[in-house]
Amino acid sequence: TQVTVVNIEGMTCNSCVQSIEEVISRKPGVKSICVSLVNHNGTIKYDPLLTCPEDLKSAIEDMGFDASLSA
């Protein structure tokens, strides 16, 4: 299991946080996700055989947020 932190801009309230957690945790390979509204990011634990940070980032962008991977 690997961990990645995705910076997420555009979250305005708690339901944004919940939406992201719900949608991303449904994705194959995602073991857990914890999104922080205050820190503008999400910490995702994933299986590298099934998904990758790029994939997770674009899934979040698909929802209408600005996402970027931290170096």
Binding site: G10, M11, T12, C13, N14, S15, C16, S19, M63, G64, F65
Partner: peptide
């Protein structure tokens, strides 16, 4: 279930 402008913009 939208709670604010942000939700509706999504």
């Amino acid at each position: 279930d939208m709670t604010c402008e942000g939700c509706s913009s999504l």
